[in-house]
Design a protein around this nucleic acid. Structure first.
Length: 451
RNA sequence: GGAGAGUUGGCAGAGUGGUCGAUUGCGGCGGUCUUGAAAACCGCAGGGCCGGAAACGGUCCCGGGGGUUCGAAUCCCUCACUCUCCGCCA
């Protein structure tokens, strides 16, 4: 049985951001609330077992106990040292009394140093075990092992009704003139296309449309940096596990962002909101850079998977009690974009075995690409509950003045290349023109894109 | 890229080895006064961890990390960032 968000809310009040003072290392790489974790170990263990990650809660529990014992012991010694320090400040500096005290405290000091080394060691192991614990799936998430167990949550439009002349976009005559992958390969490498002429205009029209729609829905528009430091990449979960996904500028120790989620979520890193300020919505267009190690065949043809692509992302920082409702409105908003573009889609409620490490609940939106005759993922809307916020140390002062961790959500609204692919395929007419949806005309200016 | 100066609580700004988590001012919150407000006066006000049902207690945090010392905001090393001047540049 999985845990309800409501119950989680009760326990998340505890303040778990650790500055382990003794080692001096600021730890914000945490996910599950410590107190909650300790008190509900069996339930959490059962819930986590439905995810695809190996978790060793037993060794975490052992280390947690050792850590706490050690902390108590060192703090006791420190208190002793501190009290003596007060006495010494009142003694004459060179007196016999003073010198005796120094000798005594030398003993305490060296003992403390030894103990500190051991504590640091345990704390390191403890931290490693702690950050290896994934977020807990919500009770409403279907239990399943693979993508086959995902639930079709909603469908819109009729895949059969799209153009009878639909072709896979890369087979449309003239495609390479307008999405120039060969020259992109020459200039940069595989997966870095040039969009040319009206195709560039169409990309820009989509970006404009998404940004305008997001603004109208209450999201604050942002233009973030597209490179980030290690701390930011860690907070949103790209580091350490998915380091290979990102391009890295070693000279400056900066990472090219794989999604705007990284800089935008980190915008409020280490900050505390007033409860009245929540929820906060943001929307950002950025190019996204992904190395995507393993890939093959139909998945990487044409626009299906690129190393650089454009995406508009939305992020929400919300009150914990509201996050699952906010997820529904986020999903609904992303779906509305596809409806306005007149593109058939389906929404998948991802099962426990197919959601990611930091996710509590996730919907994927897939658009129908009539030429390829397959569904393409264009958006992923996720509730991270407090997982990311804990890592990023984003909190708020609640109605009672207590500090709690916020919940964060994000979703694509939307990723450009696959939306573009579906548009080109579904709207292709016999004469090789592509009909442009009404909502894009204010920017595209024409009814058809001509190859 | 070169040279110099800095980094202290929401902000400003003291503190150069011993009850300093830190003086003070502003801002904030609560109260007295007022018909109301202002002014004045009084009071309360940071974060993490450990213990605790809680009240509360302990401990750590003066940009990050390391060192010296019985003891570090204060001394040393190192890194990051900010500012000033020079160079370069959209």
């Amino acid at each position: 049985m999985l845990l309800s968000s409501r119950r989680r809310g009760i326990f998340m009040a505890a303040q778990m951001n650790v500055a382990t003072a003794h080692s001096g290392i600021q730890i914000w790489s945490f996910m599950l609330d410590l107190k909650y974790l300790r008190e509900r170990m069996p339930e959490i263990s059962a819930a986590l077992a439905t995810k695809k990650f190996a978790v060793d809660l037993a060794s975490f529990e052992r280390l947690d106990g050792e850590r706490r014992t050690m902390i108590r012991a060192t703090e006791e010694l420190r208190a002793q040292q501190k009290a003596a320090n007060g006495d010494m400040s009142r003694m004459a500096k060179g007196s016999a009394e003073f010198l005796a005290k120094v000798a005594e405290l030398k003993q305490v000091s060296s003992e403390l140093k030894e103990m500190q080394v051991r504590l640091d060691q345990i704390e390191n192991e403890w931290r490693a075990a702690y950050i290896a614990i994934p977020n807990v799936p919500d009770a409403s998430v279907p239990v399943g092992k693979t993508e086959d167990d995902n639930v079709v949550f909603a469908t819109w439009g009729d895949p059969a009704a799209v153009s009878a002349h639909a072709l896979p976009h890369w087979e449309i005559p003239g495609f390479s003139d307008k999405v120039d992958l060969p020259r992109g390969t020459k200039v940069t490498g595989a997966g870095f296309p040039f969009f040319v002429g009206d195709m560039a205009r169409l990309v820009r029209s989509l970006l404009q449309f998404f940004l305008e729609e997001n603004s109208a829905a209450g999201f604050v528009e942002m233009m973030p940096p597209v490179v980030v430091n290690a701390a930011s990449a860690t907070a949103t979960g790209q580091l350490p596990d998915k380091e290979g996904q990102m391009y890295y500028a070693a000279e400056d120790e900066l990472y090219l962002i794989p999604t705007a989620e990284v800089p935008v979520t980190n915008y409020y890193r280490d900050e505390i909101f007033e409860a009245s300020a929540l929820p906060v919505y943001a929307s950002a267009y950025t190019p996204c850079f992904r190395r995507e190690a393993g890939s093959y065949g139909k998945d990487v043809r044409g626009l299906n998977r690129l190393h650089q692509f454009d995406k508009v992302e939305v992020v929400k920082w919300v009150h914990p009690d509201r996050s699952f409702a906010e997820l529904e409105s986020l999903r609904e908003h992303a779906e509305s974009l596809l409806r306005k573009l007149e593109l058939p889609y389906r929404t998948l409620l991802m099962c426990t075995g197919d959601i990611g490490f930091p996710h509590s609940k996730q919907y994927d939106l897939e658009v129908w690409a009539g030429g390829q005759r397959r569904w393409l993922e264009v958006s992923s809307c996720s509730n991270f509950t407090d997982f990311q916020a804990r890592r990023a140390n984003i909190r708020f002062r609640d109605e009672d003045g207590k500090i709690q961790v916020v919940h964060t959500l994000n979703g694509s609204a939307l990723a450009i290349p696959r939306v573009l692919a579906a548009l080109l395929e579904n709207n292709l007419s016999t004469d090789g023109k592509v009909r442009i949806p009404e909502v894009l005309r204010p920017w595209f200016k024409k009814e058809f894109l001509q190859f």
